[in-house]
Design a protein around this nucleic acid. Sequence first.
DNA 1: CTATTATTGAAACAGTCGTACCATATATTG
DNA 2: CAATATATGGTACGACTGTTTCAATAATAG
Lengths: 185, 185
Amino acid sequence: MGRPPDPARREATLARATDYVLAHGLAGLSLRPLAAALGTSPRMLLYDFGSKQELVSAVLAEARRRGATRLAENLPPEAGSPEERLRGIWAWISAPERAPYVRLIFEVHADGLARPENYPDRAEAITNWFDTLGATFRDIATTPDDTVTPTLVMAVIRGLLFDLTTTGDRHRTDRALDRFCELLR
Amino acid sequence: MGRPPDPARREATLARATDYVLAHGLAGLSLRPLAAALGTSPRMLLYDFGSKQELVSAVLAEARRRGATRLAENLPPEAGSPEERLRGIWAWISAPERAPYVRLIFEVHADGLARPENYPDRAEAITNWFDTLGATFRDIATTPDDTVTPTLVMAVIRGLLFDLTTTGDRHRTDRALDRFCELLR
DNA sequence: CTATTATTGAAACAGTCGTACCATATATTG
DNA sequence: CAATATATGGTACGACTGTTTCAATAATAG
């Protein structure tokens, strides 16, 4: 007896809260403006998520989920040479449409350096990428369980993203990726 | 006539505030705890620096100055092969003693993505590194004004620092740098 | 209907934040 | 000494924070 719970509301709120965080960033996130933008109240956010920290965790998990889905959609591992695949990854991740995700990645990383206790599984996100990239670049790996090649590829991508988001110099960063591709041959 | 100003106080405060920021990070920086740790008061911090934002700018400038000095001290550009120099840079910047600086770099970068208006010269920091690294790797540059090689080298270093600070896996990141050195030959 | 459970609004609490105001102390010059 | 400029302490303001408390509403079951 009694009124039945509505689990769909929490999910809908989570989806729209993730949109909001991607648009506005994590740094200055505050419950009242978030609730106002979502047409709800801080009261309801806490009712559904328990605390701000848990809400943030849920949002980050959702953002990760979305990113992984988009990546999987746009990167069929069987297409073309390793070089073409690397260029494809770079073109995709460095596109302006991915800027909100890229910013969130760097924001979470920086926040994790300041407050590691909030990110008990921060190494896991890296490991997940390796599984994907390890498979994508299996043919240039030196051994079947080579983690060094994906580490280097990821480092180049993240380092160039750092540069691009700081300087906005797309031409120079694109050419640096060209240079890396040449080295890989 | 009148009591003479004491410019040394501001400098001493700036030096110790920089120590504090390097130790505690930029993210949650607050005037009251900072002043307490420095044995002064928020009142005096604002008296000397005008506003928190100006204090932060001064601290970041000081931290940059220190980093540049340390880098110049530890990296004579004339020593050894390019590969040895790259390994030297990596060994130096990835050492645990540099962790506060590395964290600050990533914190400032992330903050700049969220609030670009606070960092009118954010591209400049990158450019400065290029002057240093461009000189350090002049012999592997393709042309005298080659900016692509330093861009790639810096990207690898920053990308591996991102990885190392997230996973703490020094062995894997070290080996990824080895791999990059092989590619450069 | 009543009982029960979920949902939601309004307000307040306890704290932090950067900063401004006002008075006072201190050190110097004439 | 008085006059003057710098250096400080104390305090409070207004805005914000996450969270809690209290009450009211809504929807279902019996």
